Measured scan of single mutants.
Amino acid sequence: WVPTKREEKYGVAFYNYDARGADELSLQIGDTVHILETYEGWYRGYTLRKKSKKGIFPASYIHLKE
């Protein structure tokens, strides 16, 4: 896992994603996520609506905010 280059990196989910394991994070369309790390097509972070739950999710489900 590699920390993100920018201190504040955010994105928005444009697909729903159902977590398949305890380390994964479920997403709903429109969720804003804070991205902490990246690795081979995956991000690690949390949604702003539930900051206490961190997990991994596919990068392809996220539109990055500039």
Rank of each mutant, 00 (worst) to 15 (best):
E40M: 12
G21F: 07
K9H: 09
H63I: 14
R6W: 11
V12T: 08
W42D: 00
E40R: 10
I35T: 01
G11R: 02
K9C: 13
L27I: 06
E24G: 03
H63M: 13
V12Y: 09
A13N: 00
F14I: 15
R49S: 14
F14S: 09
I56Q: 04
K54Y: 12
Y17L: 00
D23K: 06
Y10W: 15
K5G: 15
E8P: 09
S60H: 13
V12N: 01
Y10H: 09
I56W: 15
V33G: 00
Y15F: 12
T38M: 12
D31T: 04
L64W: 05
V2Q: 12
E8R: 09
G45Y: 08
K51R: 09
K5V: 10
H34T: 07
D23W: 10
L25Q: 00
Y61Q: 04
G30Q: 00
T47N: 15
T38P: 00
E40I: 06
E8W: 10
A13E: 05
G30I: 04
R20G: 06
R44L: 14
L48V: 09
R20S: 07
T32K: 12
E8T: 09
T47M: 09
T32A: 11
L25C: 05
E66Q: 13
T32L: 15
Y46A: 01
V33Q: 00
T4E: 08
I62H: 02
F57V: 01
G11M: 05
S52Y: 12
A19K: 03
D23E: 11
F14A: 14
G41I: 05
K9I: 10
K51H: 09
G45E: 06
Y46M: 03
D31H: 02
G41D: 08
R6C: 14
N16I: 06
G55P: 01
F57H: 02
Y43R: 00
R6K: 13
H63Q: 14
E37V: 05
Y10F: 11
I29T: 06
H34W: 13
H34P: 00
D23L: 07
E66T: 13
S60R: 13
L64Y: 05
T38C: 10
W1N: 07
K53N: 09
A22R: 09
S52N: 13
V2W: 11
K9R: 14
R49F: 11
I35D: 00
N16T: 08
W42I: 01
E7Q: 12
Y43V: 01
K53C: 09
I29R: 10
Y15K: 15
L36Y: 06
K53P: 04
K54M: 11
D23C: 13
G45A: 01
A13G: 01
T4D: 07
R49W: 11
P3V: 06
W42F: 04
E66N: 12
E24V: 03
A22W: 08
T4Y: 08
N16R: 12
N16Q: 11
L27M: 01
I56K: 11
Q28Y: 08
Y17W: 08
S26G: 04
T47W: 02
P58H: 05
S52F: 13
Y61G: 06
E7P: 11
Y15C: 15
G21A: 12
Y15T: 14
G21D: 09
T38A: 12
T4A: 15
E40N: 14
L64F: 09
T47A: 12
R20Q: 12
Y61F: 10
D23I: 06
I56Y: 08
G41Y: 05
E24K: 04
R44M: 12
G45F: 06
V2F: 10
K9M: 14
G11I: 06
E7N: 14
T4N: 08
P3Q: 06
R49G: 14
Y46P: 01
K53G: 05
K65D: 11
G21W: 06
L36N: 06
A19R: 00
Y17A: 01
F57W: 03
A22Y: 08
Y17S: 00
A19N: 02
T4S: 14
H34E: 04
R49H: 14
K65Q: 13
G41K: 07
S52L: 07
D23P: 04
L48Q: 03
Y17Q: 01
E24A: 04
W42H: 01
L64C: 07
T4P: 10
A59E: 02
T47Y: 03
Q28K: 14
E7A: 11
S26M: 03
P3N: 07
K53T: 07
Y43W: 03
G45R: 03
G55T: 04
K53D: 08
G55S: 02
D31E: 09
I56D: 01
T32E: 14
G45S: 05
K65C: 15
I29N: 03
A59D: 02
D31M: 07
L27E: 00
G21V: 05
T47H: 09
R44A: 04
F14M: 15
L25N: 01
L27Y: 02
L64V: 09
D31Q: 03
G45H: 02
I35N: 08
Y39E: 02
A19F: 02
Y61R: 04
P58G: 03
Y39H: 08
T38K: 15
R20I: 09
R44K: 10
Y61T: 10
Y43S: 02
Y43E: 01
E37H: 06
F57Q: 04
Y61D: 01
I29Y: 05
S52Q: 10
G30L: 01
H34Y: 15
Y17T: 00
I29A: 10
D18L: 10
S26Y: 05
A59I: 10
D31K: 01
I35W: 00
G41E: 07
L48T: 10
L64K: 00
K51Q: 11
V2K: 13
W1S: 07
Y17R: 00
S52C: 14
Y10A: 03
E7F: 13
A13I: 03
G45W: 07
Y17P: 01
Q28D: 05
I29M: 07
L48G: 06
V12G: 01
A22G: 10
D31P: 05
Y10R: 07
E24T: 03
Y17I: 01
T38V: 13
F57P: 02
A13Q: 02
F14T: 14
K53W: 06
E66S: 13
F14L: 15
G30K: 01
G11Q: 05
Q28I: 12
L27Q: 02
L64D: 02
K54T: 14
Y10N: 02
Y10T: 06
E40V: 07
V33S: 00
D18A: 12
K51A: 12
I35Q: 01
P3I: 05
G21Q: 09
S52W: 15
W42V: 00
R44N: 02
Y10Q: 05
T47G: 01
R44F: 15
L48N: 11
T32R: 12
G55I: 03
G55Y: 04
E24M: 03
E40Y: 05
E8V: 09
Y15L: 15
H63L: 13
Y10G: 02
S26K: 03
Y39G: 07
R44C: 14
R6D: 13
Q28T: 11
K5E: 11
K54I: 15
I62W: 03
D18E: 14
A22V: 11
P58N: 02
Y10S: 04
R6V: 12
Y39V: 07
Y46K: 02
Y10K: 05
K53S: 07
Y15Q: 15
I62N: 00
G55W: 02
I56M: 10
A13D: 02
H63W: 14
T38D: 05
L25E: 00
T38R: 14
G30H: 04
K53A: 08
K65M: 15
V2L: 13
Y43I: 05
V33M: 04
F14G: 08
A13S: 05
H34L: 14
K9Q: 13
D18V: 14
K51C: 15
L27D: 00
F57N: 06
S60A: 14
L64G: 02
I29L: 05
K5R: 14
F14D: 06
I62D: 03
E24L: 03
I29W: 05
D31A: 04
G41P: 00
I56T: 06
W1V: 07
K9Y: 08
P58Y: 05
L36Q: 06
R6H: 12
A59Q: 10
L36W: 03
D23T: 06
K51M: 09
R6P: 14
V12L: 05
A13C: 11
W1D: 07
I56P: 04
N16D: 11
W42Y: 05
W1Q: 06
N16E: 08
Y17E: 00
E37M: 06
A59P: 02
G45K: 00
K65W: 15
D18Q: 14
Y10M: 07
K9D: 03
I29G: 02
D23Q: 09
G45M: 04
A19V: 01
E40Q: 11
K50L: 13
N16H: 09
E8L: 08
N16W: 07
T47F: 04
Y46G: 01
K5Q: 09
F14V: 15
E24Y: 06
I62R: 00
D18G: 04
I62S: 01
E7S: 13
V12P: 02
E37P: 01
T47Q: 07
E66Y: 13
A19H: 01
S26W: 05
P3H: 04
S52E: 14
K51I: 10
P3K: 05
L25G: 00
Y39S: 13
S26I: 04
Y61V: 15
E40L: 11
Q28R: 15
D18T: 13
I35R: 01
K5T: 13
K54W: 10
